[in-house]
C-alpha cells in the first residue's frame, strides 16, 4: 500500500466535489458536494496520519474535528435551505439572486 494511492483518490473525490458544487442547481445537492469535498480532505488527513505520523496520529485528531464541523455545517446549511425554500418556494441556486428578501 502506498500513500500516493490514497492521496490520488482524495484528489479525484475533491475534484468531483468541486465540479458538483459549481454546476448543481439544487441547493441540497450543493450541500452534498461540500460533504464530498470535506470527505476528500479527511481522507488526506487520515492517510498522512497513517503514513507520516503513525505514533502521534494527529491527522486522526484533525479528522475528528473536521467531522464535527461538517455535522454542524450540515445542520445549519440545511436549516438555511429550508428557510429559503419557505420564503422563495424554490431550491434553485440560480434564483437565489437577492441578497435580501
Amino acid at each position: 500500500m502506498h500513500l500516493q494511492f490514497f492521496l490520488l483518490l482524495a484528489a479525484a473525490l475533491f475534484c468531483i466535489g468541486v465540479y458538483g458544487l459549481i454546476n448543481s442547481r439544487s441547493a441540497v445537492r450543493v450541500l452534498m458536494c461540500i460533504e464530498l469535498m470535506l470527505n476528500a480532505v479527511n481522507l488526506n488527513l487520515m492517510a498522512f496520519s497513517n503514513f507520516l505520523d503513525p505514533q502521534e496520529i494527529r491527522g486522526q485528531v484533525f479528522t475528528v474535528f473536521v467531522i464535527t464541523i461538517a455535522a454542524a455545517e450540515a445542520a445549519v446549511g440545511l436549516a438555511i435551505v429550508l428557510s429559503i425554500y419557505r420564503n422563495r418556494d424554490t431550491v434553485d441556486m440560480e434564483r437565489f439572486n437577492l441578497l435580501k428578501w
Binding site: F6, L43, M46, S49, N50, I57, Q60, T63, I67
Partner: peptide, 10 residues
C-alpha cells in the same frame, strides 16, 4: 478506507 488506514475509531 479509514479501516485500511488503521483507524477503527474514526
Amino acid at each position: 478506507q479509514y479501516l485500511l488506514l488503521n483507524a477503527d475509531f474514526v
